[in-house]
Amino acid sequence: MALRDGFFKKKSGSANKAVDRIKFVLQSDRSGLPPETLERIKNDIISVLSNYVEIDIEELDFNITKAPSEGGALTSALCANIPIKGLKRTTVDDKVHKE
């Protein structure tokens, strides 16, 4: 039974959901910023980048994580993984040139 359960149920489990939920809640715990503020930071970053490149918002990953700094102590860091679909045809540079 255990074998079969393990074989079929692996992906439907709730552990992944737990991981996602903790990661989300720790973002605001660690930064001391309320979730809405984090959401606004994220949207601002997206909007700035969108001036230059086309972003895959579905695949975007935005996290406050802890990583060892050079001294070895853990520090909070904003880690964003933002996939770029392609360059925008009209970049800000072009606009400046035209003007």
């Binding site: 709730s14 552990a15 991981v19 903790i22 990661k23 802890k66 990583a67």
Partner: peptide, 16 residues
Amino acid sequence: RTGDMMSSDDVVEILA
């Protein structure tokens, strides 16, 4: 194994 509990790897990754 059945994906219904976080593994120690998951916990270590979260807590660093």
